[in-house]
């Protein structure tokens, strides 16, 4: 059994208009997505802004009211309040936010920030609590004198590590990381990513890693889902997605990642423009008549793509011919 099973999750926001301010339409931020997160793995959720990836993350933590579907955690649907309590869900699932400054209370000292989840869930004495906070600071590589400082006294990377320390304080089983490194510099990004991998090895934490940066996702994730306009267009292992992409949207995203290999930059650019051209011309082949992605169809045990079966097979065959 997977740790988390998301089935047909939908989050729609109502649009009200007209004289009575009635619901006239809805924004389908997340429109029927399903995927599973295994224990101890990092699951990557990739998409451009507005694709609904953050909404999905928030729904899993429980910050977003879902319209329909289910999120099963250890076999129970946690969209129901009673089940959440029974499972200690809020204790087991934590979140790391993108903007470390606005997610830390500016008026609280680091000690109180990191101890807050402990005070909520674990009843420790003052000394025990302090010891635990010091341990956490040590895990994220901050000095003990950080205890009495305020968030603004730290650099961006240090703040992000404080956010991580707070998230791991309760020994969670799953952490939702919503763009945890996109606001950071390269060297600091490396620090935070290494560190996230380290605590995963030590504590067996699972991550739902939400990001738009395909380079970082390749580095972090074993399994990846590509999201577009509220639907999943392709899911698979790292190898499936990066080396054998089928859906045009995935190919387009991959082609747009800037490469540091300056010698091939002309070919890389030509390839990107070619993919872009196909995307423009053949949109109707990859999306249904409402512009929505098709339901996912498995093409290998690990790899599924949102295309009618015949189309998917045709594309794979064509690519096989090109390579041969």
């Amino acid at each position: 059994m997977s740790l988390v099973e998301i089935k047909n999750l939908k989050v729609h926001y109502p649009i009200r208009s007209g004289f009575w301010n009635r619901i006239t339409d809805s924004v389908k931020a997340v429109d029927g997505i399903s995927f599973n997160i295994e224990a101890g793995e990092t699951y990557g959720l990739v998409g451009e802004s507005g694709s609904g990836k953050s909404t999905t993350g928030k729904s899993v933590v429980g910050l977003e009211k879902i319209t329909s579907g289910s999120i099963m955690y250890q076999g129970k649907d946690i969209t129901k309040k009673n089940n959440r309590k029974e499972l200690d869900y809020n204790h087991d699932v934590q979140m790391i936010f993108q903007d470390s400054l606005s997610s830390l209370n500016p008026r609280k000292r680091i000690e109180d920030i990191i101890a807050e989840p402990l005070r909520n869930f674990e009843h420790l004495s003052k000394d025990e609590e302090k010891l635990r906070v010091l341990q956490l600071l040590d895990i994220v590589g901050l000095d003990p004198d950080a205890l009495y400082k305020y968030p603004h006294q730290f650099s961006g990377g240090q703040r992000q590590r404080i956010g991580v320390a707070r998230a791991v304080a309760t020994n969670p089983k799953l952490i939702i990381a919503d763009e945890p490194v996109s606001a950071l510099d390269l060297s600091v990004q490396a620090q935070v990513l290494n560190f996230m991998k380290k605590i995963q090895r030590e504590f067996g934490i699972s991550y739902l890693f939400i990001s738009h940066d395909l380079g970082v996702v390749r580095h972090m994730c074993n399994n990846i889902a590509i999201m577009n306009r509220g639907r999943l267009v392709e899911i698979g292992t790292r190898d499936d997605i990066y080396n054998h992409p089928v859906h045009i949207y995935t190919k387009r995203l991959l082609a747009a990642i800037p490469e540091t290999n300056v010698n091939d930059r002309k070919e890389h650019r030509a390839n990107r423009l070619a993919v872009e051209e196909i995307y423009r011309q053949q949109q109707d082949k990859y999306y249904d008549k409402d512009g929505k992605a098709f339901p996912l169809v498995p093409i290998s045990p690990t790899h599924s793509v949102a295309l009618p079966k015949e189309v998917a097979e045709q594309i794979i065959k064509q690519e096989g011919e090109v390579k041969a």
């Binding site: 990004q189 972090m220 540091t260």
Partner: peptide, 11 residues
């Protein structure tokens, strides 16, 4: 800097 970038060969 170049070494701290996530790349294909250090995944």
């Amino acid at each position: 800097l170049l070494r701290s970038m996530p790349q294909r060969d250090n995944q």
